[in-house]
Amino acid sequence: MRLGMVIDTRRCFGCQTCAVACKSANNLPNNNWWNRVLTEGGENMDCPAGDYEKGYSLTFLPTSCQHCDNPACTRACPVGATSKREDGVVFQDYDKCIGCRMCVAACPYNGVRIFNWEEPEYYLDFALGDKDIPAHQKHVVEKCTFCAHRLAQGKTPACMVLCPARARFWGDLDDPESEVSKLINKRKYKQLLTDRGTNPSVYYLV
């Protein structure tokens, strides 16, 4: 089984709902974002490249852990705190993490791994979001786990519940009948940093 994501960049208009859905469901500490919608365009977020004469270009790349098939991070972690599961999810075990940040150095996808540099802080004094999330810890690395706590109950990852553009899909890439497999068979796609040998499980339809 290989869980993966397909994101249709022709439809995604960068509304950031998936980023906030992840943040709220996982009760992410302040300033932590496991899913960031990046702007492929100009110098500033949400601005296009180009000009009126030659034409503009602006697309969005929701970027979170790519759950690579050949992850650099799992090889680098000295204690196996990050590991590739049978279902394809690259999991993060907070209790094992010694905070060496080797995985952050090894992962080519800058920014998908977050280290809690201080005691996690929140805006409210009680936990928001799902109730089965593993507690966030100071001085450990965290990242998207495909909402492993939801998968364990057969539920949908938070970012996949509803994309307003209907641009996000997830499923078993090993199953030819799954929505994601059909999409990547039918449509042109690109992937991020394919020259690093990581074989990511996220496909961006173009």
Binding site: A19, N30, N31, N32, W33, R36, V37, L38, T39, E40, G42, E43, N44, M45, D46, C47, L61, T63, P108, Y109, N110, G111, I114, F115, W117, E118, L192, L193, R196
Partner: peptide, 13 residues
């Protein structure tokens, strides 16, 4: 020199 320096939210304190 980051591999991906597309503009977006910066995480962390």
């Amino acid at each position: 020199i980051p591999n991906m320096d597309l503009p977006g939210v910066t995480t962390g304190p």
